[in-house]
Amino acid sequence: MNKMLAEEIYYDMVLGRFFELAAKEHYMAGDIAGFLHLDIGQEGFSVAAMKAFAKGDVFTTYREHVMAISRGMDPKAVMAELFGKVSGVSRGRGGSMHLFDPSHFFYGGDAIVGGQIPNAVGCAYARKYKEQQDGVMVVFGDGATNGGAFFESLNIASAQKLPLLFLCENNGYAIGTKITRVSPFEKQAKKAEPYMLTMEVDGMDAVAVYETLREARHLIEDGHGPVFVEAMLCRYEGHSMSDPGNYRNKEEMKICKERDPIERMEKMLHETYLLSEEEIDALRQRAQRAVDDAVEFASAAPEPELEELYDNIFSKDV
């Protein structure tokens, strides 16, 4: 990894964390409503995944703000979407859980656990049919691997040898239920082993995530068929805003936070790429300004007009 990319990844991670903190603050203040799932603690994974899979299509879950921004969506438009404003990426229609941007090949934002996996399979079929090189990446949590959609997708993707990267975001909990209480395995890659090549990576290490996914991407591009990558990580917050996350004790959270991806990246920038404290600070300040701008933009943005209610039911007036 070169210095420029390392800096870029670091910047996106910090931007992601500040964004999530601002989202949390404005949720508490009532500016953001509904369900809000924060990605704090997982930023290294989310950013590195987007950088490693920069060209193909991405399907992901409702915990997608950091991925969306790192993918290239404007933080202002993403924050405005969280605020439900007309300037949001989906004109305030989708909210926090439904961020879409086909211009960045980002079909994000699915709020049905595991529901996006069959869609990614279909998209991978389309890419193969159209002989387009870049494959498809689908991100899902450990909880989704217990559902039927996941197993159907493993089966079809491997039977058809589709260019699909299964990326499991294993943070150990399906909402508040520890994964080992509802699955015989702690590591879900076991479920995929009969079907395809599997890999495991420390999800709290952005560089490792980046390198592993790059390797997986090359395998897919070479026509190897689907690959399963499992990232072991840790979310600091509850499942959503309404979850205090008290099913995890202080000791567990302490160990978690010692693996903090931002601190690790900072250390690397400092020691390997010889960035000064001031240079790192400048990146952080730039990120904070971007988030402040996003909040200001979102606050001032107008609500959608009521006439919009019936827009986009169908692709044209039917």
Partner: peptide, 22 residues
């Protein structure tokens, strides 16, 4: 395309195919 007997995937894959331009 002959699919397995997996209706969720038949429609789910079709959605993805449509997203992918088919």
């Amino acid at each position: 395309i002959d699919t397995p007997i997996a209706e969720l995937s038949i429609v789910g894959n079709a959605v993805g195919m449509a997203i992918g331009g088919l």
